[in-house]
Design a protein around this nucleic acid. Structure first.
Lengths: 228, 228
DNA sequence: GTATAAGCGGAACGACCGCCCCGGTTATAC
DNA sequence: GTATAACCGGGGCGGTCGTTCCGCTTATAC
């Protein structure tokens, strides 16, 4: 059962390595990438040197954790690829990824590309993830459920946005509402019903004019509240 | 014209203060809150001590900049309050805030509550901002354009999400698409047209079952790729 | 012109964090 | 049991960043 791919590890070393990996997963999940290595070492009951012997850099430790998580996510997606309702499958997976990111900040950070670029961190896993997510997406699009103008990268970005929003407000009700907004936004537009449609387009131009005047111009108005 | 609310400042001191404030605005806009004080001092051509004499902490410097920006945003919103098309006014403002956040990372960080809590940073400005944004929102909701189940805090959070997404992908085309997804998600749902509707709800349950199995469970599978 | 105090700049301090090193310990082969 | 090499832990290094301190400079009042 236990594999020893490289030259065998001493028993205590193997134990420590597994322990560090497990603790690291939990710590990253709770605090994200920003958790110090020293804390992981402390929680694992080992010295920092031990962590660094098994994982030469923080990046490699993070990589090991993230890779395992991605593999897990990919497996889950594959379970849904055979589903009979492509739209429901896509949205079920999307929602699952959102809640997953709420539980695992390390994963959310990885998807967001905080600190390390995921494509370099775990190239294979990231590619397979995007591939399988892309298949779920195209099926939903082919079924006419998801708007056709977005691609996998867009979905990934929307996912990152959902994670940020959930961190910004930990209220679960709000999280559900906000995810619902994005899910609805992803759906194919129904034909306009007139009264609900976007409103007077000419006003949109006028609004832009109103706002355009100096919006985002340089400098802080020094006669304002900034100069006490 | 130039006010001197407190005891008068020496001419060079006033000049330096204004210079620091202006440079700080630009630096925060470009790099967000994470820009070091030393760099602001360097760019302003003064020593770090000079920055700290005028603004005792980084927080207070940031506060001065953010407060001015909020005041500016509030003024812009008030211009739109009298608009005849509440829906267009709301969406015009929302879009303006999104592009504003892309230009000004310091502002985006403030809205996201990164580093400092905005409500403590600039309580008055933040309250007035939420108030005026809330009025634009309710009007659009009363007009039946924006879905009624969301509140101001939701809109603020969605804004933060848009900013994150725009940072995650700097492609302007993608940014437009992603903002469009959220704007569409904010619109009142049209009556369902049957074929496009959410799909078999019973499958949604089954999908949850498929995914629920261990999704988000504790621990990393140590027989996986984590144990080379 | 001179006295004086406000203002200036940058060296320095402390805290944090990723990473390295080395003297001591311990599993393992014989 | 013993030799030995792998392994362990934690102190320390180097870098970053917010903040403070102090000797020198200079605007300003008289």
């Amino acid at each position: 059962m236990p594999e020893k791919p490289a030259r065998s590890l001493r028993a205590d070393a193997a134990r420590n390595r597994a322990r560090v990996l497990d603790v690291a997963y939990r710590a990253f999940a709770e605090q994200g990438l920003s958790v110090p290595i020293d804390e992981i070492a402390r929680r694992a009951g080992v010295g920092a040197g031990t962590v660094y012997r098994h994982f030469p850099t923080k990046r490699e430790l993070y990589q090991a954790v993230v890779e395992a998580r991605f593999t897990w996510l990919i497996e889950r997606a594959e379970l849904l690829l055979g589903a009979e309702d492509p739209g429901a499958a896509f949205f079920a997976y999307f929602s699952a990824l959102v809640t997953e990111g709420a539980t695992d900040k390390g994963l959310a950070d990885a998807l967001a590309g905080l600190g390390f670029d995921v494509e370099q961190l775990a190239p294979g896993a990231e590619r397979r993830f995007k591939e399988v997510l892309g298949r779920l997406l195209s099926r939903a699009q082919d079924a006419g459920v998801v708007r056709p103008d977005i691609d996998v990268a867009d979905v990934k970005t929307l996912l990152v946005g959902c994670h940020t929003m959930n961190r910004h407000r930990d209220d679960p009700d709000a999280a559900r509402r906000l995810t619902a907004v994005i899910r609805d936004g992803l759906r194919t537009r129904r034909p306009a019903l007139g009264i609900f449609d976007s409103g007077d387009p000419s006003f949109a131009e006028r609004a832009d004019e109103i706002l355009a005047d100096g919006f985002g111009a340089d400098g802080v108005d020094s006669s304002g509240p900034v100069s006490p």
